[in-house]
Amino acid sequence: MDPVLFVLTVFLILGSLVALEMKDLLSAVIAIGVVGLGLSIVFLLLGAPDIAITQVVVEVIVVTVLILATKGSRVEESGGRRNFLVLGVGAIALILATALTIHAFSELPAFGSDRTVASAFYLRYGPDLTGAANVVTAILLDFRAYDTLGEATVILAAIVGVLAVLRRPARRETPARPTVGGDPDAPTPTEPTGVPAPEAEERAEVLHG
């Protein structure tokens, strides 16, 4: 294993642990961002610049959204004392999963080998048959355009879902000021009508100009 890759992997694991254990949400988000950027360097070292570009930019957007979303939200202290039984079961599960993963990975073909017929065919004839010098794009958009169609459909469905959940609430006859007090956690994403009317109107304005 490349020593740089090894150091980076250890760094990524440490960053993930920091993100998990941070009490401050903003620090946790920054740790997640560091992990994402490290991951993009790993992709670059493994010879996948296509993925590295995407990973960097997606990470930037995700971290921005997370910072905006966690800004001003309170941190709930969770847990407290840890149950030793839970810890023990967790440790055993971790050891088992690690052993199984190592076993599974040892069965994989060596990194970079083109052992399957299809991959050898793509590498040999890809540029000639599709005209795309970048073999990744040749596979994504010509040989296996169906996969990309499915991927586009998944993204479309996800975005439509987000827009539908966070949509402007339907105009209906509601009292001018619904109850605000009581449960402070009432406005949850799954309950759009829990937001008081003025905020809902403002949100509608934000969303629809």
Partner: peptide
């Protein structure tokens, strides 16, 4: 598709997070 979709999702999430955090502050 990807550019417009990501940006639309970003705008919706930001607007929603802002609306709910405002509501939280008011109820507090």
């Amino acid at each position: 598709k990807v550019g417009a979709g990501l940006f639309a999702g970003f705008a919706a999430i930001v607007a929603f997070a802002r609306a709910t955090s405002d509501a939280d502050e008011k109820s507090d």
